[in-house]
Design a protein around this nucleic acid. Structure first.
Length: 336
DNA sequence: ATGGATGATTGCTA
DNA sequence: TAGCAATCATCCAT
């Protein structure tokens, strides 16, 4: 160990090394008190310093010669040690930084939307939710559904191809830097640990690019969602059968067109829509009927006849004629 | 392209 | 909190 200390001191004394490499004041002091270093090391260092002034070919030859020198491994490790103590300890403070909460949120969202997960995972669930929220008929719903899915798949594809590109570029660049550093480590004090750190730095930089990609993908998905899931935007008329069922109920309960919660559930089930859609429908129907009874008269008569016929059929089939629901021709009575 | 129809939303009331 | 009234946003037949 004493040998090494002396060697270290001698290197510092040669003055050609960068400040970073010899900034340990302790070693400088030691050097001053230790006297003449072995000529051997002095020579080597002189040669190293001279390389910068030489032509490339000469330098290559000198590099090779230095590489084969018997003192090289020892010198190398000492220089690495110094470097480790000075520059790298400052630069590489934040080692294993904890997973960024921002990137975790993005990852979770992309997974939930089925962008980053397996092919037919969350995406279809989200689209199904969209269809359910829209409450349209199965036919209409599936049109929107497939449209949404197609757009989502497009985003997904772009995301994955970009991600792949980034990853490829990252590994290419990392390889390049690693090769470069390995090559340089033949003449410069670069420890494997330092190379490792450099790789980590590169990965961090690339992951920030990745985060940007994730962010913009999330944005695209949000826009898509708001476009497709906004109920007003994707409003679909109920299918004919559903409208018929609702109208039948409305006109056969014209004196009191306020279905109970149970009745609403029943109607919702029959029409394949939600209870709140049934409520909306009745709310709209009541107000619009009341506003212009004349306009709805024809429709009212139609459903009155329809209901009567149905009732007649039922009573004809039944052994006894129970009192059928008599169509009401009266006004809508406000429920108070 | 347009206007009426229609489902959804909002703000309010009792 | 359900329902009303007004309004919005979209659909759809013309």
């Amino acid at each position: 160990m004493d040998d090494q200390t002396r060697m270290l001191a001698s290197m510092a004394g040669l003055g050609g090394l960068s400040q970073a490499d010899v900034s340990d004041p302790d070693s400088v002091r030691k050097q001053q008190s230790l006297g003449q270093p072995p000529q051997d090391i002095g020579d080597i260092l002189q040669q190293i310093m001279a390389i910068t002034d030489e032509s490339l070919d000469e330098a290559q030859a000198r590099k090779h010669a230095l590489n084969c020198h018997r003192m090289k491994p020892a010198l190398f490790s000492v220089l690495c040690e110094i470097k480790e103590k000075t520059v790298l300890s400052i630069r590489g403070v934040q080692e294993e930084d904890p997973p960024d909460p921002q990137i975790m949120r993005l990852d979770n969202m992309l997974l939930a939307e089925g962008v980053s997960g397996p092919e037919k995972g969350g995406g279809s669930a989200a689209a199904a939710a969209a269809a359910a929220a829209a409450g349209g008929s199965p036919n209409d719903g599936s049109i929107e559904h497939s449209d949404y899915r197609a757009k989502l798949a497009q985003i997904r594809q772009i995301y994955h191809s970009e991600l792949e590109k980034y990853e490829q570029a990252c590994s290419e660049f990392t390889n390049h830097v690693m090769n470069l550093l390995r090559e340089q480590s033949r003449t410069r004090p670069i420890s494997p640990k330092e190379i490792e750190r450099m790789v980590a730095i590169i990965h961090r930089k690339f992951s920030s690019i990745q985060m940007q990609l994730k962010q913009s993908t999330c944005e695209a998905v949000m826009i898509l969602r708001s476009r497709f899931l906004d109920a007003r935007r994707k409003r679909r008329n109920f299918n004919k059968q559903a409208t018929e069922v609702l109208n039948e109920y409305f006109y056969s309960h014209l004196s009191n067109p306020y279905p109970s919660e149970e009745a609403k559930e029943e109607l919702a089930k029959k029409c394949a829509i939600t209870v709140s859609q049934v409520s909306n429908w009745f709310g709209n129907k009541r107000i619009r009927y009341k506003k212009n009874i004349g306009k709805f008269q024809e429709e009212a008569n139609l459903y009155a006849v329809k209901t009567a016929v149905d009732a007649a059929n039922v009573s004809a089939q039944a052994s006894q004629a129970n009192s059928p629901a008599t169509p009401n021709s009266g006004k809508v009575h406000r429920k108070t």
